[in-house]
Design a protein around this nucleic acid. Structure first.
Length: 258
DNA sequence: ATGGCAATGTTTCATTGA
């Protein structure tokens, strides 16, 4: 089984790119963030023609998440948002697919340390963690995939000194990431030896991709049971090289589920 | 210290992202 996550920065703009990528990389499950499309305009039929079924929770202009699966895979118990957390932003979608609880999440950006949006980000992460604690008790096979908007360690930043204390990197955000790990979730990417300076996002400006000035902020966290079955995790930089790319690259985990 | 790039809305620029 292959699980992937990709912040596409508008699914309607990136639809052809996503379909091409799925042809080249026929993953079983693909979590998308920043679809920026309301549910009544979601490109359901185009994806189905490519062999993928989708569940989605979107809104106009901002945010929006979706979970695509190879259409023969069963999908049950779809839940949008973080239960018990009041929020009108569409950032979380969960479903049980082929016996695995998939949680697709688009963490808030936080804008700037100390801002209202930063405070919202920290509250949001706390609520997510509290809820995931109960979910893990229900679903030992659980994967949290998405754009976390957190670079967990200095090696996940192209220039750690330039980023000290900034949003995406601040101590409080990293503490939130560690809280998720303390629930028993493990960063699939770091289970394996990886190239230095591996990133999943590069600014559109300053030729940042060409200079590999990036951050690793898109992650796949696995429950203890799933961790045992995971034998690879990679970032696919290729679609970032295409015309009119998303600023994020997909992350793919390969699991041996029997 | 600043801007640079991209997507969206109803737009002739403002807002947001990371």
């Amino acid at each position: 089984m292959k699980f992937a996550t990709w912040n596409v920065n508008s699914l309607r703009v990136r639809l052809a790119l996503v379909l091409d990528w799925l042809t080249e990389n026929p993953v079983d499950i693909l979590c998308l963030q920043e679809t920026k499309v309301p549910d009544d305009k979601f490109p359901d039929s185009e994806l189905r023609n490519a062999g993928y079924a989708a569940v989605f929770s979107g809104q106009k202009t901002y945010n929006g998440v979706a979970i695509l699966r190879r259409q023969e895979l069963p999908c049950e118990d779809v839940v949008a948002d973080i239960p018990g957390f009041e929020d009108d932003q569409k950032r979380v979608l969960s479903a049980t697919i082929a016996g695995v609880r998939i949680v697709c999440a688009y963490f808030p950006n936080g804008q700037a340390v100390g801002s209202d949006k930063y405070a919202y980000k920290l509250r949001w992460i706390e609520a997510l963690g509290r809820w995931l604690g109960t979910e893990l008790a229900r679903y030992p096979r659980l994967a949290l995939l998405g754009d976390y908007n957190i670079a967990p360690e200095d090696r996940d930043i192209h220039d750690p000194l330039a980023w000290v204390g900034q949003v995406l990197v601040s101590d409080a955000e990293r503490a939130g990431f560690r809280q998720l790990q303390q629930l028993g979730l493990v960063d699939a990417f770091r289970l394996f030896e990886q190239p230095e300076k591996s990133f999943s996002w590069w600014d559109y400006r300053m030729l940042a991709f060409r200079r590999n000035m990036g951050l690793r902020i898109d992650h796949i966290l696995l429950s203890e049971v799933l961790r045992e079955t995971c034998h690879a995790c990679v970032i696919d930089r290729l679609p970032r090289k295409r015309e009119q790319p998303s600023d994020h690259a997909p992350v793919i985990a390969t699991l041996d589920l029997s």
